[in-house]
Design a protein around this nucleic acid. Sequence first.
DNA 1: ATCACAATACTTTTT
DNA 2: GTATTGTGAT
Length: 721
Amino acid sequence: MDLLEGLNPQQRQAVTAAPGPVLVLAGPGSGKTRVLTHRLAYLVRQLTAHPTEIMAVTFTNKAAREMTSRAATLLGGSMSAVSLGTFHALCARLLRREADGLPFTRTFVIFDEADQLALVRQALKTLDLDPRQVQPGKVHAAISAAKNELVEPEAFPASTYFGEITRRVYERYQRLLISNNALDFDDLLLWTVRLLRENADLRARYQRHYPHILVDEFQDTNTAQYELLRLLTAPQPDLFVVGDPDQSIYRWRGADYRNVLRFQEDFPTAEVILLEQNYRSTQTILDAAMAVIDRQPGRHRKQLFTDRGRGLRIVLHEAYDEADEAQFVVETIASLTATGEADPGDCTVMYRTNAQSRPLEEAFFKAGLPYRLVGAQRFYGRREIKDLIAYLRLIQNPDDQVSLLRILNTPPRGMGDKTIQVLLEAAERAGISPGRVLLDLARGDQAEYAGVFGGRAGAAMAGFGRNLAGWFEIAQSLPVAELIDRLIRDTGYQAYIDDGTEEGTERWENVEELHRAAIDFSEGALTAFLEQVALVSDQDTLSESLDAPTLLTLHAAKGLEFPVVFILGLDEGVFPHQRSFEDKEAMAEERRLFYVGITRTQDRLFLVRCFRRAQYGTSGVTDPSRFLQDIPADLTEGGQPGRQTREQASFERQTRWDSLSAAPSEPRYRAGMRVRHPTFGEGVIQETRLDRDDEIVTVEFEAAGPKRLSASLSRLEVLEG
DNA sequence: ATCACAATACTTTTT
DNA sequence: GTATTGTGAT
């Protein structure tokens, strides 16, 4: 049976378990995704399940794609019939199909974080609450937490002042979502659960339709997701879940690793299988990981073991500041690459917060080395991208008031605050959304709004309404990419965004990037495109093609593995993060996050911290992370940052400054010089200038084109001139 | 109505 | 130090 080839006895036991509730508790690097994939294939091949009868839930879209292709390889055919994706994506699909009878239509849009916040602000305003006294973010977090726990507005505990406020905002917020014909992320789960709870026929239909359900990363499911699983799998569940409570890192998003315990209570007949052998890391890495996680009270210890041998020691390094930290990374990777110990693509740099990527990017840029940055948020969060998405969403769903308000006067078209206010009031009076009012005006239905709009403003709005109606029309037949073309042309968006400055050009390039993404999106349907945009995960942006180091947050690193790992910012306040200091559970989660980070490593691990670190512009001295003290000294080499005294640190700082003052005071290179670079080959210097303590050289390389390099980081060999 | 500049919070992690 | 919001001038 080739489906079981290369699997160890525990893995085989899991793959071939009898249908029914199965809980696989798997340590890091134990091949749990592999088990899941083989189980999928086993269901089809051995238990003759039809692929359409399988629903598999993964944590990211990328994981879903990977599982599809791996399972397809195993089966020697297409697995596309399997319903595979994240909880959110699967729920969105179900809701679009079954929207009849619900208070929204199947063209609903999904609101992202920023839209949700805008709605909370709006709710606060209509309730006459000052956003300065009631923080919208806090209220939104509370609402989201409630939704993840399946708590309806009426049931929201209003025992405190904040609770009372939140409850009222929650009510209002839900109504606003409906009037926008929009759902937020939590709604996707909430409405699906509601629908299945209340509609027995539908529930039975889905239970029959998906007799087999598999779930990856089960420790990161929340109450709503767990309830959903229970609803979908009764009365005779074939539910196969895989997870590791030690790797639970999404508590702040409502995830509850106690779902693992709940599972065993709710399904007492569940078969429980442990996967303990690790195929990823050296024993040194595993020993360090265990030392970190074993400090966690109240957990079931497990022994991680491998037959890979001890491997190299973990390197500890203390840098002076974040620029120095980044430079250490770049230099170390450069030297590992130069000696052939690792490929650039084998290396990965992890950090606690996204903001920490900036100094890294600068260092890589200065050294003229490419890198891969994981983070979709940042692209889709850009103003110009949000604008165009708002246009698309409005076309898909004219009731989307948040998107309408965003782009009504973007680019400026003579509809200022006053005009917008009039429009909103007219919509309120007519009992329809402002988008519909515009469409009415475009059709010439002035009667109903007679005397409401002044001549100029009325004309502007009718004009925009006609545009909107026109786009609405062509959207039915045109692929998304061409629709975007039309939008840009009709609105003069390029002229608006690209003002010739460097920033303007960059913004326009982003627009082109979105356009490319739309072209690549084969399905062509607007709804599907918008859904994908709303539900992209960070990891979805990881390109496999480039052989370059990867930069990502520790959260985004979940489920991945790399030969060489750097974990940066091991300073109190950064990692563990400041916000977790008062809350024991939050601190426990930080520790698990560190555990996740360490266990991504196959061979070499570098733990780095800074002596001083800038926050809010001013920099201050930091203390080493408490986690560093938990790594046994016999596993490490390099400094003992955890035990360094302040005097030693300040002495180091002194010597640092001395060495920096030896930096060039006049250029070492001249324009016209012929140079050679180890990576880019030969080229001619175009320009050179001094930048603080460094010299920046612009070189036109024969093969690689123009590059800007830092003289101190890149070894340029002068050939002539 | 629009733009330029200034003051002001603000940074955890993400579907 | 930066993104966002608010204010005042055009």
